[in-house]
Design a protein around this nucleic acid. Structure first.
Lengths: 161, 161
DNA sequence: CTATGTTTGCTGACACGACAGCAAGTCGTG
DNA sequence: CACGACTTGCTGTCGTGTCAGCAAACATAG
């Protein structure tokens, strides 16, 4: 029972700043996207992955690996997007359990129209405010944090097995 | 109709890294908090603000200003937390519209117990992975971004008025 | 082949947050 | 005081995300 190692002033400023930035930035970008294109961040994320795929066609499992979502979240999201005509689900030829997800023409049109203003917003509210050194630092930091958490996750799996 | 100024390789790496880090980090911390203390991030946020207030007592409007939430979100959250006995709502003496929010003994106990392991997690998965220079850089960046978005928000209000 | 365990995607139920709208209270101006 | 405009907090409704559980399809061992 060691005494708690609280955050010092600088650390707390960074942590609270990070949380505030995320909250404000995510809200702003979500609003921009929804207003300009009628898409949610979730829509946009899936559309980007699919549009970057040769054939605009991907198995649901692969899509899950790309975005790191829960099974059910993806299923719900795909159902909604299929109803709106952004994509279609068809059977997988090589594995009868699988579902293939394919971008429709409407879906391609949507992402092509949505991307430019969204990138502009990302620039205006974030990227263009950083120096190249800061961008490199940020990439380094995020890579480190993700790797650290992934490593801890592996450990947990070991413990559970 | 100028051609879109897409993100270059470094910028895209930073942006995608940032998004991935948030997703993974927020998920991990939320799980830790919920597992160790039975609290959500939203619970924790309100409890921290209240516990830092002299008298553990704050008007709902002030609480909203602190956390930057929607009116209804705060009302829903307060209702749930009141039902769980973490806080109580009483009338405001100086303004009959207002509601005073006060931490209960149980609420104080909850935050006092929840804070140490949560800070440990924040350290383990984030703060301790950064150098002091990186912490300073991060604080600078987040401050800049928040200020930029706030400024844009002011502009919008001007346009609407 | 059968039996067992795993993977894959889906569904239903619940918690949460955004939005619009409401009632009560306050403030400013005549 | 009377009137209208604004503020404050709450509720209902809807879209979204999480979780537990399901059925079908694969994989592997005997």
């Amino acid at each position: 029972m060691t005494p708690t190692n609280w955050l010092n002033e600088q650390e707390q400023a960074a942590w609270r700043g990070y949380r505030e930035m995320y909250q404000v930035l995510a809200g702003t970008l979500e609003k921009q996207l929804n207003r300009d294109s009628g898409l949610s961040e979730a829509d946009y994320t899936l559309l980007v992955v699919l549009s970057e795929t040769p054939g605009q066609r991907l198995r649901a499992r692969e899509l899950r690996n790309e975005v790191g979502w829960d099974r059910s979240r993806l299923a719900h999201q795909l159902r909604r997007m299929e109803q709106r005509g952004l994509l279609v689900r068809t059977e997988c030829e090589t594995d009868a359990r699988g579902t293939m997800v394919e971008l429709t023409e409407q879906g391609r049109t949507a992402i092509v129209a949505a991307a430019p203003p969204h990138v502009e917003a990302v620039r205006a509210y974030f990227i263009d405010l950083l120096t190249p050194e800061e961008i490199a630092t940020l990439t380094s930091i995020t890579g480190r944090v993700v790797a650290r958490i992934r490593a801890a996750g592996e450990c947990d799996e070991f413990l559970n097995s």
